[in-house]
Design a protein around this nucleic acid. Sequence first.
DNA 1: CTGTTAGCGCTTTCAC
DNA 2: GTGAAAGCGCTAACAG
Lengths: 336, 336
Amino acid sequence: MITRDDVARAARVSSATVSRAFNDPDSVSPARVKRVMDAASRLGYTPDKNASALRRSGAGTILLLEKSRGPAVDNDERFYRWFYADIIRSVKSAVDESMLQLALHSYTSVVDIRAIGKRRLADGIVCHGMVDEAEVAAVRGLGIPYVICRQMDATQPGVNISFVDEFSGGAIAARTLVDAGHRRPCHITGSLAHVPVCGARWEGFASAFPGVRPELIDGDLGIAGGHASAMKATSLIKSGGIDCIFVVNDLTAVGVVQALLASGIRIPGDISVIGYDNLPFIGTLPVSLTTIDIQMGRTYREGTDLLLKSMKTGAVIHNPVTPTLVPGGTVAMRNR
Amino acid sequence: MITRDDVARAARVSSATVSRAFNDPDSVSPARVKRVMDAASRLGYTPDKNASALRRSGAGTILLLEKSRGPAVDNDERFYRWFYADIIRSVKSAVDESMLQLALHSYTSVVDIRAIGKRRLADGIVCHGMVDEAEVAAVRGLGIPYVICRQMDATQPGVNISFVDEFSGGAIAARTLVDAGHRRPCHITGSLAHVPVCGARWEGFASAFPGVRPELIDGDLGIAGGHASAMKATSLIKSGGIDCIFVVNDLTAVGVVQALLASGIRIPGDISVIGYDNLPFIGTLPVSLTTIDIQMGRTYREGTDLLLKSMKTGAVIHNPVTPTLVPGGTVAMRNR
DNA sequence: CTGTTAGCGCTTTCAC
DNA sequence: GTGAAAGCGCTAACAG
């Protein structure tokens, strides 16, 4: 085990200088910084994060905080688990570039959140998908730097947040269809009034079709819901009332596509379809669904980077992340 | 911040006794252990893992080690990512019960693995899905306690491993079908000779059908592969040559089911189908697929528990985990 | 069984 | 700008 003293000896400086060279290079003469860094890399020195954290009297830790999931997991949650790997890796890679360690932590109620402060468990907190206002308030009340990463902007001002800009995502879906020559849009969604994410996608979509109000089918989310909504749309498709459908998420889109194909409607021949989320099970469809990637990884990566920065500067974090188009085979070019 | 000294004072014992009460309760009189624990919980004391690790001159860390994934991720890998959340949570909950912290680490080559030892990065290593023999050798060469968690047993003796017993999984599929009265089995797989997991599932399946050699269709894995294999099976189904199909994984099973239904074959009326993996996209099918859950969470949870234990005892780890049946609607009862 | 004591490797005053 | 020295909270000898 190489310690800081070994490096100090090799670089012929004091051990305090080694420490400063690593943590605050500006306070050391450039020549010495170089001597220290050379010696360090020659010896293969890695600072001990435990000792560092201990001396700093900090936790030495960034907490990835998530609501604990009981055994009763609903199907939606099961689907969104696919993003988990991306999220973990993104946060991890950001934290690795600091002197801190990543720890995972889950809570069941705000009581658990408050305990984090009492026990000095974290120097910074990345909240995963937190939407409950009381929980957000509890995190803010901790006095520990934090960032909330999730799919929607904050409803309160001043909250530190990195979020998927769902409104823009809806707008991208619209622009993709507009650019391909579509003029008679339809949106299939579910629980529109109750799920904020659905609302944002719909508003973004509608906003980018100037002069047209898209047809709106507000049924149920999920495969069965998509099936049912698609059946309602068939007559509109056959009459030429709509030439494209933006479905609020891939899961529902699977149902829509299955139902349309079963009804003898060709995709994209008779109708263009675009989904949302870029979940891998769209690969189970006989067509390659054009969809929108919500950029979860980037949302968390940038959120964590900004958290690390704000731990020094105290700056407020407000970071919208724009989804991206994943081209597929379900959007056709239409003549105007 | 409550320290061990505060607890010692409150419990009227020395601070060393507090430490012992937490780390080796057997070496302290029961009465004192209770006094210490009472005081600790009253004060809300949590041991400082950084100080603990520093003093122990260990890393204070269990590493979850995985091969780093480049940006070019194939679709299969995307599917299996679904297990990642389970894996992380399982390992995490096991590590939480120790004095250690969980850290995530990825490697691109054996060189990275060897660096772990040089830098005292871990007190124990949980290897995620490691199959490459050279990598396994590198981990063993580290001299750090480790356990490999993956889907197959080790090929070398003496390797510490917790694994999904795929052979038993295949046998469970077979027994499920036998118990429901099936006597003319078929197995659809892909790349049988090249993918050990497929081989084990097939052998387990075949072993549990006494006196019958199942029909074997060895095509390609994946939805398209399943489609093609199913087409080969249709005449056998119509002639009554087979009464059930065990498909090597759910992804391929999706293709099989789609193709059979499209051919007008009823499931389970004309043929029973059983899949393998319990991935959520089986919900994209119009039938509820009977499948086998590979118990990834348990494999990692038990593996980590055993690693923690073996760090004290030095015992070799060899832990097979048996998959479980997930009942669905694609297996019918047949009269003999 | 229990208390005393000496650090683990690092950061951060405090002098110079 | 730099070095000396004092601990951060804990564990592991060592004595008793």
